[in-house]
Simulated scan of single mutants.
Amino acid sequence: MQSGHQLCILSILQKLSFIKGFDELVSMRVLLLKEPRDGEAGPDPYIQELAARGHEATMIPVLSFKFVSLNNLSDKLFQPDKHGGLIFTSPRAVEAVKMCVEAEGRGEEWRLIKDKWNAKSVYVVGKATGDLVRQLGLKPLGEDSGTADVLSCLIIQRENAFLLPLFFPCGSIKREVLPTALRDNGVPLETLTVYQTAEHPDLQESLTSYFTQKGTPASIAFFSPSGVKFCLETVRELSSERLTRIKFAAIGPTTADAMTAEGLCVSCSADKPSATGLAAAIAKVLL
């Protein structure tokens, strides 16, 4: 039989064990600074992959988008004979195409047109963009390239100056790496801005609410240079002296470069821009 003294010590140890467990639980929190995937059934894949590795992830939308030039985009989509292929480097550009396809009941017409595009090349960056392209009935190439820089090398290898220009629907703040590389190597290209990017109107309030309710997360993941631009100052203010304890993660090298340029120490970067790639990278640094 245990004495009263022993029971008292046991009680203290149990409480300490609970506190330790609670601290470990807090340390598993991950903040994802990105928009949920539109139309995604079930749990978001990033949250799901992190949960499978024992991490509690929260997603905060960072960007808002306004679609523009859709009439012009529609004209080009339904005249595939004027272009040598398509390039998509973001899910939003694919969403703009989907809006054009679904507008005015042009679905049946698209079923015929898409085969003409599939006879050409449809280049993409990233699995998320590739999945959306497949939903349109198109066959993506290069989704494992990871960055526009790498994709440009693939395109240069496959295309030549004698083909019709590739058509590149893009955002207002796209990087110029891919267009420059293609033009420098004689690959004709036509770009069209189909969406404009801005800070999400609820971003600052959402960040403040997260830090107030859940505290400083163990890891924060950025998904674009724009996300770094819009979030970093607020994250620094809210985390204060705890900033150096946060493991900062990047979805890829372009985002990592933007983080480094702002003075952040990048703890990890996904080997591929996917939920699995990012979750695996974060899991390693949170061991």
Rank of each mutant, 00 (worst) to 15 (best):
S219N: 10
T212P: 01
A258E: 05
E205G: 06
V235H: 06
L207T: 01
S224M: 00
S209N: 03
L203H: 05
Q204V: 12
C231I: 08
A258P: 06
D202V: 03
I220V: 15
T208H: 10
S240W: 09
Q204L: 13
V235Q: 07
K214C: 06
Q213N: 08
R245Q: 15
T260Q: 14
A256C: 05
A258S: 11
Q213R: 15
Q213H: 12
L238Q: 05
A258L: 03
L243D: 05
V228E: 11
F222C: 02
F211H: 08
T244R: 14
E262R: 11
D257I: 04
T260R: 15
A258H: 05
T208R: 14
A261K: 14
E233V: 12
L232P: 07
T216I: 14
E205M: 12
F230M: 01
Q213F: 02
R242L: 12
T216H: 13
A218R: 15
I220N: 08
V228S: 07
S240Y: 12
E233F: 08
G252R: 03
A218Y: 15
F223M: 03
E241T: 13
Y210R: 02
E233G: 09
A261H: 10
E199V: 11
K214Q: 15
Q204I: 11
L203A: 06
K247S: 11
A261V: 07
E199G: 09
S239K: 10
G227I: 00
R242V: 05
K214I: 02
I251Y: 13
T255W: 01
F248D: 02
T216G: 08
A256Y: 10
L207H: 01
S224Q: 03
S209Q: 02
C231W: 09
D202T: 08
H200S: 01
V235G: 06
P225T: 08
S240E: 12
E237C: 12
R242C: 09
L232M: 09
I251Q: 04
A218K: 15
T234P: 00
F222N: 03
L203E: 00
E262K: 14
G252C: 03
P201E: 11
A221E: 11
E233I: 14
E233T: 15
S209V: 00
T254K: 04
G215I: 06
P253N: 14
S224K: 01
F222E: 08
L207P: 00
T255C: 03
L207C: 04
T216R: 13
S206H: 10
A258R: 06
T234D: 08
F211W: 09
R242G: 04
